[in-house]
Simulated assay, not measured.
Amino acid sequence: MTQPRTCLVTGASRGIGAAVAARLSADGHRVALLGRDVVSLDSVRARLPGEGMAVTADVTDPAQVAAAVDLVERDWGPVEVLVSNAGAGVGAPLVETSDEDWARMLELNLTAPFRLVRRVLPGMVEAGWGRIVVVASVVAKHGEAQVAAYTAAKHGVLGLVRAAAAEVARTGVTVNAVCPGYVDTPMTDTTVEAIAARTGRSPDEARALLARRQPIGRLIDPAEVAEAVAFCLVNGAVTGQGINVDGGTVQS
């Protein structure tokens, strides 16, 4: 059995974050769940097989994030594993993307992970062991129409991962990204609704359209993303990588 670690998972109230929390808990780690919805966080925590903690914070609020990490450290000690998963997208043609949407996408999907990594990295380096995994996206690897701001932010966060990994490569700390395709989550449900509204397709037709975009012909299961995150914890030779979990969409 692997040594139990103190883990912090953001965006843990549903979807990929909840699946990651469940997997890490099943592997024997204690997991702090961070999100904005305390009711949903408590529901996820109640289903964990091991020790869990629910911490409410908006990752785009630096003071809330600092207080949340302080709380975890006070009760459990330094964060040894960070899974920066919280994120969201916005769909619009580039020429219709507002400054506000652009700024929001960068703040949530790039700046918030940066602040989290910056906060927990010193403790990991001091301990000589740590794992950071950022949940990016397949669009960190290629451009996609109608999501320019989201794509730019995810490209940026992959650059952050690579730079951080290079800085700490000799310290025992690894930094990786997991890059999912379309996953069967509430976030994809929102995308399905937007496609249906824009094209006149039914929700089932819109969902099937997204499934067909991936060579395997289906949506990714959140547990499959969680499996990739778990791999990053146990393999210390893998760092600075963007691990695709996209059904073969991007071959690299």
Rank of each mutant, 00 (worst) to 15 (best):
V39G: 06
R104Q: 15
L108I: 09
D75S: 14
A196Q: 06
S252W: 12
A19G: 13
V135F: 06
A164G: 04
R207T: 00
P122H: 07
L110Q: 08
A21L: 10
W76S: 05
D99A: 14
W76K: 04
A86P: 05
G123V: 08
A152H: 02
A136W: 00
H142M: 15
I132T: 03
S252N: 13
A68V: 04
D184L: 12
V20C: 11
R118I: 04
D189C: 09
N176V: 10
V178H: 04
V44D: 05
V192P: 05
A228L: 06
R119A: 13
I220N: 01
Q241R: 15
E73H: 12
F114C: 04
D75A: 14
G159F: 04
I243Y: 09
E100Y: 02
G87V: 11
A32C: 13
V229I: 09
A237K: 12
D189Q: 10
L160E: 00
D184R: 12
S202V: 05
R47N: 11
R74T: 14
G200H: 11
R30A: 02
P78E: 10
S25D: 08
E96I: 02
P122V: 13
G200R: 13
A18N: 02
T171P: 04
T249R: 08
D246S: 11
T185I: 02
D61T: 12
L219D: 00
V72P: 00
G217M: 11
G247Y: 01
E167Q: 15
V229E: 00
R131Q: 08
T97K: 04
V95F: 09
L24W: 01
R131S: 08
G242F: 06
C7R: 01
V69R: 01
L110S: 07
G247C: 08
K141W: 05
P203W: 03
Q251G: 09
R218S: 09
G217L: 09
V125N: 01
V175Q: 04
Q251H: 12
E193W: 03
E96S: 15
T190H: 13
V55M: 06
A165T: 14
E224M: 08
M105C: 13
V79N: 12
A32L: 09
Q3C: 07
L160A: 02
V234G: 12
P93F: 06
V90P: 01
T191S: 12
R115S: 03
I220S: 00
A197V: 07
R118K: 15
L8T: 01
A19Y: 03
V83H: 02
H155L: 10
L82K: 05
